[in-house]
């Protein structure tokens, strides 16, 4: 439970732009109406997530100390940013393709 709370708290560092990008990408995927565009959607997410992490690395890493005190290394923090994003994207893309 504590582990999950830490992960979600970390994810808030990028949650807003990340979720907006996921929804916009899902919108395009839904409009196309075909799973062929799923590869493009995944690449879009991969590239934008890399850019977001780069931004966090250079401009938001001063917030890392808060999580370092909770036993999170820099690498663990990056995983905390990536894993929820992958889960949210996977669920959203799946729902769009099913509906």
């Amino acid at each position: 439970m504590q582990r999950m709370l830490i992960m979600l708290s970390c994810y808030r560092l990028v949650a807003l732009p990340s979720i907006v990008i996921t929804f916009v990408t899902s919108g395009f995927l839904g409009q196309s109406g075909t799973p062929i565009y799923l590869v493009q959607a995944i690449w879009t997410k991969a590239i934008t997530t890399t850019l977001l992490l780069t931004f966090v690395h250079f401009f938001r890493s001063n917030h890392f100390f808060f999580y370092n005190n909770l036993g999170q290394s820099r690498r663990a923090i990056y995983w905390n940013l990536i894993i929820p994003d992958v889960v949210i994207s996977a669920i959203t893309f799946s729902l769009v393709l099913i509906v």
Partner: peptide
């Protein structure tokens, strides 16, 4: 892996809280 062992807590000069 010393951070994971939670031996030292650190207050930075700048803000700690996001």
């Amino acid at each position: 892996n010393q951070l994971a062992k939670r031996i030292i807590a650190y207050l930075p000069q700048s803000d700690l809280l996001p």
